[in-house]
Amino acid sequence: MFDDFLLRAALAGVGTALAAAPLGCFVVWRRMAYFGDATAHAAMLGIALALALDVPTFPGVLLAALAMGVTVSSLGGRGFAADTLLGVLAHSALAFGLVAVSFLPGVRSDLSAYLFGDILAVTRSDLMVIWAGAGVVIALISWRWSALLTGTVAPDLAIASGLDPRRDQAALTLALALTVAVAIKVVGVLLIAALLVIPAATARSLARTPESMAIAAGALGSLAALGGLAASFRFDTPTGPTIVCVATCLFLISVLIGGRRKR
C-alpha cells in the first residue's frame, strides 16, 4: 500500500493538476503560454523575498506572481511585441530571483527544490494550502467561465453583452498567480507552465466543446501526476520532471491518434 508520504504526494499532484487544467485551457486558447512562464518565474523573486523576511513562501510567491501578472497586463503596446516583453520579464525575473536567493545563507542546497519541486516532501499543511488554493482557482474560473469564454472568442462580443473582459482578464491573472503558488511545491518554478499547457494541448484533440476540453485536461493532468509519481518511485528519478515527462508522453500519443484519425 501507499506510504503516507506517497499518498500526500499523490493528493498534491492531483490537486495541482485539477487547478491547472481549466486555467491551462485559457492559457492555450488565449496564447498566454509565455505569460504563464513569466508569472511562474516571478515566483523565484517571491521565494527570495519570503526567505529574506523569514515568512512562509506561499504569500511571497503569490505576491510576486500577482505583481508580474499585473505588470504584464498593463504593459501592452509600448513599442515591443508582447512576446519580446514577456521574454524579457520572464527570464529576468528568474535570473534576479536566483541572484537574490544566492545572497541568502544556506539556501543554495535547497535551490533545486524550488526550481523542480519537491512533491515527496509535501506536508499535511502544504496539502491544505494546495487544495484550498486549487479550490479557489476552480471556483473563480467556474464563476467567470462563460464570460471568459465569450471574451476569449472576441472581446467585442463580451462587451456588447454587457460584460467587462478586462475585469475577467484580472480574474484570470489572479487564478494564474494562485496556481503558481500552489504548484511550486509540486513541479517547481521552471515546469509550472508545462503543467498548464501540456494537459490542455493534449485534451484539444479529444474535445468538441470548451467544457469537455477542460475536463479532459483535468483527467490527463491527474493521470500525468499519478503516473509521474509512480515512475519516479520506480526509477528513482526527480518527481516534478518525471510528471512533465509523462504528460508529454500522453501529448505525443494524442498527437499520433489525432493524426491517424484525420487521415
Binding site: V153, R204, S212, M213
Partner: peptide
C-alpha cells in the same frame, strides 16, 4: 440589449466549439 455581429471573427484553432455551444455565449 445589444445584438452585435462583428465584421470578422477568428476562432483560434486550439478552441473546440460546436455551433450550439457558440450560440450559448455568453448565456445558454
Amino acid at each position: 440589449h445589444i445584438g452585435y455581429v462583428p465584421q470578422k471573427l477568428h476562432i483560434d484553432p486550439t478552441l473546440p466549439i460546436t455551433v450550439t455551444r457558440f450560440l450559448g455565449l455568453p448565456r445558454r
